[in-house]
Design a protein around this nucleic acid. Structure first.
Lengths: 256, 256
DNA sequence: TTACATTTGTTCACTTTTGCCCGTTTGTCA
DNA sequence: TGACAAACGGGCAAAAGTGAACAAATGTAA
């Protein structure tokens, strides 16, 4: 362990915590080879300067007050239902999970409900979802990259596909405009098919989130059969008849 | 150990500390073969000149970039300078160009000046830059992807590097916290080095944008030598002496 | 050479930093 | 809620660093 100047150690602490989002006093003490009491004294000063925020047991990065996380707030339609779906979906995420969040307004609501969680890694192709989770201390965010779709925040293309082929996650939350018990997941645009298929292939468990208006719909391009989908989360407005159809297709359906 | 004149030793101390980011009195004493008391006297003078900052046990480089950026960026002068640099940089972009825009506040100003242009492709690792150009009808945007840095909009990591290795552009606009005529482009954080090197390698013409406060600074990690940089755009506040130094190093320098 | 100024090295009293001890506070879990 | 362990902060002494005074070495000029 190289001995550092006190001033430099303080700067490195700030760097370290910014990279790791948070750190315990013990971790920092071991990292820099000094006594825990010394770390506490350092942290007191660093907090005084407003760079980090002290908590019991360690530090976290100071939550910036200007809460302007997402670039844009759209979608008034089905807002209440989407919010309920987002909350339910987020509750399926366990600490330590690595998940994929597809681009969409419903998945954005999932992100909002993950802000206060800890030790979660999120891979997304939506800049809005990424921006929402940007300051969440317990959430690591990876953006897929790719071409930015005009007047949206979705990324798509060969780079997106490459990243999705390079990862493996426990759960993928997929948004869609059409899901049908027999024909499965379909899309109106061919360009988006590969990315969604990549997400499905990268996940152990595939969870589709869709409000009532998407249920029973069929679009032109086939993305995935019903058998590839494990769970569907939708609103309680959906008819019992439809629910039964999905259950018969082997899909676990959660209505909220 | 070569015996140095006092004045030269002082200059060498400044260089040494700038390269190492910090140094203890003992290290410097051994390095220059003089007594610690002599080093202390030197440091007192050097600090008087405002070149380095004294701490208990040694010295560190005055980290304007770490503690005062919020102040600097809010200060109207700096903002004005960045705006001028952004405008000038944007004027170098020709219709049909494919360019890389690095993450940073100055490069964000470049993006703002590209909104009304046509037939331009922008590759960026900054979600803010991407969002700024999102609705520009004549600009295609590709985001590199990667891990999202806490409290910023920068993307970094293996996916960023992969994308940068996969593209070729006519011009890359690089932001930095330190550029020096002799030591070239340097960074305080090791993790960002590969991405910047990728941008430089992907471009036919490398253009560094840096306001006055970055000129002549040296940070720990080496990114690129001066010979790899074609053009430097900075504010007219920069001293003629510094300008000449960069010109002698073969860098075209534009002051606005 | 001598006289004098400047710089460097040495010593020492003083200050800051650090590690450790221990009583108090805080978070967790049954 | 109460018990328990972890974390905290204040006090203290050892260690490291500092500044000032002074001596020694070096440089300069008559």
């Amino acid at each position: 362990m190289v001995i550092l100047l006190a001033a430099e150690r303080k700067m490195r602490i700030v760097e370290f915590v910014r990279q790791h989002r948070s750190a315990s006093v013990g971790t920092l003490a071991k990292e820099f080879g000094v006594h825990e009491a010394t770390i506490r004294r350092d942290l007191a000063e660093v907090e005084q300067e407003g760079l980090l925020k002290r908590t019991h047991g360690g530090v976290i990065v100071e939550q910036l007050t200007h809460h302007e996380p997402s670039f844009n707030e759209r979608s008034g339609i089905q807002l209440d239902q989407k919010e309920r779906i987002g909350q339910k979906a987020a509750s399926l995420v366990e600490d330590g999970d690595h998940i994929i969040l597809d681009s969409g307004t419903t998945t954005l609501h999932i992100a909002r409900n993950l802000v206060h969680r800890s030790n979660i890694t999120v891979i997304t192709n939506d800049m809005n979802v990424a921006a929402e989770l940007r300051d969440a201390p317990g959430v690591k965010v990876t953006v897929t990259g790719g071409e930015l779709y005009p007047s949206s925040f979705m990324l798509n293309g060969m780079f997106t596909d490459y990243v999705l082929r390079s990862v493996h996650v426990s759960k993928a939350f997929i948004a869609t405009t059409a899901i049908h018990p027999k024909y499965g997941l379909t899309l109106p645009e061919a360009q988006l098919v590969v990315a969604k298929q990549g997400m499905i292939a990268a996940a152990q468990e595939v969870i589709v989130v869709a409000d009532e208006t998407k249920i029973g719909k069929i679009s032109l391009y086939n993305v995935a059969q019903s058998s590839a989908i494990h769970t569907l989360i939708t609103g309680k407005e959906v008819a019992d008849y439809d629910i039964k159809q999905f259950q018969d297709a082997g899909i676990q359906i959660l209505t909220v």
